[in-house]
Design a protein around this nucleic acid. Sequence first.
DNA 1: GCTCCAGATCGACAGCCATCTATATACGTA
DNA 2: TACGTATATAGATGGCTGTCGATCTGGAGC
Lengths: 118, 118
Amino acid sequence: MAVDLELAPKHKRPAGEPCCEPVVYPDVERLEAERLARVAKALGDPIRLQLVDVLRKHAGKVCVCELVPLFDLSQPTVSHHLKVLREAGIVGSERRGLWAYYYVNPDAVKELSAWLSS
Amino acid sequence: MAVDLELAPKHKRPAGEPCCEPVVYPDVERLEAERLARVAKALGDPIRLQLVDVLRKHAGKVCVCELVPLFDLSQPTVSHHLKVLREAGIVGSERRGLWAYYYVNPDAVKELSAWLSS
DNA sequence: GCTCCAGATCGACAGCCATCTATATACGTA
DNA sequence: TACGTATATAGATGGCTGTCGATCTGGAGC
């Protein structure tokens, strides 16, 4: 993100009062913003947020066959949401026999949590 | 969210090993999930996340005319992103003379932050 | 009044997303 | 081997989203 620190008001303004303080926006923020936004976006759907909630409450591994009936959605749709979460790094999965078990990856959420509460 | 606590495995499974522990999912979670997801969704765009970042760094009021040149976007697009953030309750705005000043509403972010780090 | 400027809104458009049904894959059991 | 079951994938579709240029709004100053 190219930053222009010389954003001093080029326009007229009321009675000497400056438009605002100069804005500082270091270049290093952009990639971090993209990482954070990717996680936030994945959590930006109530179904996916609830999926993460359930997976966290059961702190470990819950099989998909228990997740599907919690929602009024088809199995492929739930599978799709799990995939979105997986691709965002928020959850991981492991296959045991016929069943697939999902678990929350705490690190992915940690960075967003830290930024939010900073 | 209607919950079926009797999700005991209806299917055959390997060697007595249960498919998974029973899933508990209280009804009260749904509305909260929708609130949280609304905030997360609004933050799920790098531009909006950076806007919030700038507004937080300048802890108070920054005029829009300083925000627009930070991004390689048209003024209407930045205005649109600010509107999304406003509708999610993440930022507020105040007009003084010609200029509009945006600020972060800490409460909106707080709930999401608390859930993430719980 | 008129003009200029900051910001918001409108309308259009391309790309993305949530959902479905249908099908494929992969594993267990008989 | 053949069959059933748990997930994943594919393809379609309607709706949402990010972006733009053009325009509207409303305040400041002449």
